[in-house]
């Protein structure tokens, strides 16, 4: 059910036209795989790079918007402030397709508040956290998503509990919550495509091992440990609304999530646990149980594809034309309005 590889997409663009600058991350960094999957997702979705705004904060992960979609404008902002920057940008130009890439330090520590409030407002954005549990650029300190008891490269153990961004996002009303692994294209690419089509905040926590500072035994986020403990909830597929093909349901319990634009996300249960992706309370319990069992549970946890919550664009009751392009006549009331306003002050 995955999209057949084609040399050009529906816009006539090749995959290469979704590429960006050369990565300066460590060879083997999980983040580079995420960049690669982002390119695949945009290419396969046939999204015009001109329509995209790439947002990030500061950190290894936040550098990556330089490595993909060089035809899209981006704002590599300041540490922890990707969320409010994205909020302002989307309000200014509602037509922008927003994608944000942040890290676990950027989102779960310095930017936790911005993340929480972006979710509360249901800003339409695909919000990706490249999560490796450490601060790479400052050489390996724990971040807030490091597991309790995780071992630093120096041997120190993390004495503090971890922040599970997925549980938190669900609790705050996030309308699309998933976790994936940077090395799992099969899972991550459909999730990214769905996130880009989702009308609301789509949050994907991508476990992305730090090859330099957290790839040792005991880090809990090394490639080996992630592979060993990764429990995949569903096999995912994505069918775009523009694709003239019917969903090829595989054997087993397959369900479909209808996206607002007519696309479909398909989920085939892989795990013995029954989970309804429309049940947020169950999703939080599921995540907690998995964490306690030492599992790295990946897949789609929660989705409100029925648009139960309004997006920030709707809450703001924005005019159709992007605010950025309003003319003087559209953004300046006529003369008599000033006279009327001043009547109150005479």
């Amino acid at each position: 059910m995955s999209t057949t590889p084609a040399t050009v997409n529906r816009l006539g663009l090749s995959r290469g036209e979704y590429s960006g600058g050369k990565s300066t991350l460590c060879t083997g960094c999980g983040h580079d795989s995420i960049s690669n999957h982002i390119v695949s997702a945009f290419f396969q979705s046939g999204i015009d790079p001109y329509d995209v705004a790439k947002m990030s904060g500061i950190g290894c992960s936040s550098k990556t918007p330089g490595y993909w979609l060089s035809r899209a404008s981006g704002l590599n902002s300041i540490h922890g402030r990707m969320a409010p920057c994205a909020t302002g940008a989307k309000a200014a130009n509602r037509n922008l397709i927003m994608i944000g890439v942040s890290g676990d330090g950027d989102t779960a520590s310095i930017g936790l508040s911005g993340f929480a409030h972006l979710v509360r407002r249901n800003l339409p954005i695909a919000y990706i956290v490249a999560n490796n549990g450490v601060y790479g650029l400052t050489k390996g300190q724990f971040s807030a998503t490091a597991d309790f008891g995780a071992k630093q490269k120096s041997g120190r153990l993390n004495p503090f509990s971890t922040i599970d961004l997925c549980s938190m996002a669900i609790d705050l009303g996030c309308t699309f919550v998933a976790r994936s692994f940077s090395g799992d294209a099969k899972q991550l690419v459909p999730l990214l495509m769905a996130a880009l089509k989702h009308n609301g905040t789509a949050f994907i926590d991508v476990v992305s091992p730090c090859i330099t500072f957290a790839n040792h035994e005991g880090s809990r986020k090394s490639f080996a440990e992630v592979k060993e403990h990764n429990v995949i909830l569903q096999e995912l597929g994505f069918v775009h609304g523009f694709e003239e093909k019917t969903v090829d349901y595989a054997e087993g319990a397959t369900e479909t999530v209808d996206m607002e634009d007519g696309s479909k996300l398909t989920l085939r249960k892989l795990d013995s646990r029954a989970h309804d992706v429309r049940d947020g309370t169950a999703a939080i319990s599921l995540l907690r149980a998995a964490r306690e069992a030492g599992e790295i549970l990946t897949g789609l946890f929660y989705v409100d594809a029925g648009h139960a919550r309004e997006t920030l664009t709707e809450t703001l009751n924005l005019t159709e034309k992007p605010l950025a392009f309003l003319t003087d006549d559209e953004a300046r009331p006529p003369r008599e309005v000033l006279r009327r306003i001043l009547d109150d002050y005479r």
């Binding site: 704002l75 402030r81 409010p84 989307k90 200014a92 508040s113 911005g114 703001l316 950025a324």
Partner: peptide
């Protein structure tokens, strides 16, 4: 023809302005 967001703090208030201005507001 406007957007007003009551921010979570001043760090967010000013960076919302940054994002909005960057996008042309």
């Amino acid at each position: 023809t406007f957007a007003i967001v009551q921010a979570e703090d001043e760090l967010a208030a000013i960076t919302m302005v940054a994002g909005a201005s960057w996008a042309g507001a």
